[in-house]
Structure formats: structure tokens, C-alpha cells
Design a protein around this nucleic acid. Structure first.
Lengths: 192, 192
DNA sequence: GTCTTTTCTTGATCTACATCAACTCACCCA
DNA sequence: TGGGTGAGTTGATGTAGATCAAGAAAAGAC
């Protein structure tokens, strides 16, 4: 439990240091949460009320388009996670979140987070910098997905996150890479 | 000139209202700027020192991968623009910005904006919400680019931003849509 | 205005990847 | 313990869109 909050505090302070008193209050709003593999965190059409910090395990974010399940991204230890567009806009989510392993999370309710933003400038700053960080990561990924072939995207993922292949099913990785499971299977064979 | 600042103020206040005194100070750091069509705003490898507000005209953001020019996005009237990853990280930019029409902009220097973030919570908040807005737009676009065929992406762009086809060359639109200029040309013929 | 350069168009081919289909393997649970 | 269900593999075929190439048209340059 302590390790979870320590991880969370470190993550936050890497972007914006907090006063001890601020952290003490902020901390009270974060709730620890253990979930089993395969748990559906957010469903489509539902407004996301929580923002999650992943302490252990993997969470998969995905969208549905024409009945297709498209993986948008995976959150591991130290990442934040959630149907972030719905959380921010308060509109029904177009995305879902589910655990692909057993996970340990901490979560905070929208209202509590907004109150913290109002109350503490340092937390407001963390919010700004956190969004900026996400934005940068996402724009890099956008360029990536445009500049490389299926095979190159696969190789890059193998280099950057080899562990993912142990933690997530092939078809989810395939949809994340923007290819069919068959194509991914053939690429893996080629490497072996 | 006044209209430019009014537009800027409205944009900012749509996310976070400012005290009159805050706006008066903030305003002094924004510099108006007129540029001709085809002007290179940011080059690759250069650190982006400015953040831009587009009052009139179109700015194109693009990346280079293996000598390929890939359009990332277009900013029109009322948008913000800039090599945002470089601006935020202070690393040399992997992206470029150029005007595709004559433009009128307002720009603010990194240091001045950071000072404003430090000084005013309302401006810090604007920064957070602005990043959030960009993030949401980008994540929608990411899902879009995965879920639709070239033809569908073209049709959606025709619906959403028909004016773009007047303001930007076909090959830039093509790279934005993730297809070759030839393919775009054929799709346009089909519609006519 | 005419000459040059770049952009756009159109056609012929090629290929990466999708789709369809059949088979294997692991895992679960009655 | 065996058979059902979903995940992964493998092969045969199809196709969207890339690539290559060569005109036509538009946009600058002087």
C-alpha cells in the first residue's frame, strides 16, 4: 500500500513538486483498487468518473468502430490510465478500458481532482504538465504510425516493449499495431 | 489589430476566464506577426521558442521521416499552432511549421508564457485545459485514422473542412490523409 | 506575355496486407 | 477425462492503394 502511494507521489512530483501538506490532502482522495485480469473498467456510453494510476499490471484502452475492437494503448506500472476524453469532457465514453492482467491501481474521482485543481496551483500545474506529456507521446505515436510499414512497427514494438508480448494477447497487439492477427503471426514467425 | 487580440482573448477565456488586469498584462507579451504564404516558421533541429495563435490564414505542421514530408495538421483562424513538442520539451524540433497562405498571427515567447503560468493560476489553468483540448482532438484523430479507409477519410475531410481544399495543395492534404497524391486525385475525380 | 517549374491527372503495373478458411493447440469446467 | 471454446498458425486468394511513368495544366519568374 505504501509503495503504491510512494510510486504515485514520485510520478506526480517528477512534474510538479508539492508541499508536504498538499500531498497529504491530495493523497486522501486517491483510493487503492485491486482488480482481476479481464475486468472491464469503463464501458462505452458511460461517463468516466475516475482517473487511474497503474501501480502493477497492464490496462488496455480500446475503441469500438463498426464492431471492431481497436487497441489504442496499454498502461503499465507508473502510467496513468482511463477513458481520458470522457473523463475530461464529461461526455459518454467512446472508449473502453480493461485489465489484461491482475492489476493494482489508485483512482481519484473527477470532482475531487477538480477541487484539488481549484485549491492548489501546484496540482493545477501537474495537470497542465501531465496533459502536455500525454500530448507529446501521442503526437510521436501518430508520426510513427504513418511513417512505418507493419513490419517496421512490429520490430519497433519488439525493441521498445518486448514484455508486452507476454502480457497481452496477440490479437490486441495486432490491433494496436494496426494489422490483423494473421499478419502479426506471420511476422513473429519470420523473426523466430 | 484589435480584432486579433479580441479573438485571442475570446479563445483563452472560452477555457479559463481572466481578470481584466491579468489579461492586460498577458496581452503585452503577445506580439502580432504578419507572414507571407510559404514562410517557414520553424525548421527541423531548431528549438521552438514561440507559441502561435492564428488569426487569419492557414499554418501547416509537418514532420520529416526518411525524407518524406508528412503533414500532421493544419491550423486555421482561432487555432493555436507551433512545433508544440519542441516548445514544451525544449528539445530540437522534429517537426516544421510553414504558412500555406498569407497569415496573421500572434506569438508569445516561451519564457514569457512560463512566467505567466507562474504568476497567474487562471493562466496555468488555461494551459491545462488547452493541452487537454489538444489531447482530445488528437486521440479522436488517431482512432479516425485507424478505423476508416482512404476513401472514407477523404469523404470525412470533405464534409468537415471543405475549405481546406482551396487553401492547401493536394499533396499536403494527401499526406495528411495518409495516402499518395495520386490516390487523392483519383478520389476527387470519383466525387465530381 | 512566354518560358520554366511545379502541381495535378491519368493509366499500367505491382505488392503489402486483408480476407477467408481449415487446422492445431491450450485451457477450462462439467 | 474428454469435448467445447477461443487463441494462434498456416495457406490460398483478393484487393486497396503504392509505385512508376508520362502528359496536361497551373503557377511563378523574368
Amino acid at each position: 500500500m505504501d509503495a503504491l502511494f510512494k510510486g504515485l507521489k514520485d510520478q506526480i512530483e517528477s512534474l510538479s513538486p508539492l508541499e508536504e501538506s498538499e500531498w497529504c490532502e491530495f493523497k486522501t482522495y486517491w483510493k487503492p483498487l485491486k482488480l482481476k485480469k479481464g475486468h472491464q473498467i469503463t464501458r462505452i456510453g458511460q461517463v468516466e468518473d475516475y482517473f487511474y494510476y497503474v501501480y502493477e499490471g497492464v490496462v488496455r484502452g480500446y475503441a469500438f468502430k463498426d464492431g471492431e475492437d481497436i487497441s489504442i494503448g496499454f498502461s503499465y506500472k507508473g502510467d496513468y490510465s482511463g477513458a481520458y476524453d470522457s473523463f475530461l469532457t464529461r461526455n459518454p465514453s467512446e472508449w473502453c478500458m480493461e485489465t489484461t492482467t491482475n492489476v493494482e491501481l489508485a483512482c481519484i474521482h473527477y470532482n475531487d481532482l477538480m477541487n484539488m485543481f481549484d485549491k492548489y496551483k501546484s496540482i493545477e500545474r501537474w495537470g497542465r504538465l501531465f496533459n502536455a506529456k500525454m500530448l507529446i507521446a501521442m503526437s510521436r505515436r501518430q508520426v510513427e504510425s504513418r511513417s512505418y510499414t507493419a513490419e517496421e512497427r512490429f520490430e519497433r514494438l519488439m525493441d521498445q516493449s518486448p514484455h508486452l508480448f507476454q502480457l497481452v494477447s496477440q490479437r490486441h497487439i495486432a490491433s494496436y499495431l494496426g494489422m490483423t492477427p494473421e499478419t502479426l503471426s506471420r511476422l513473429r514467425k519470420k523473426v523466430r
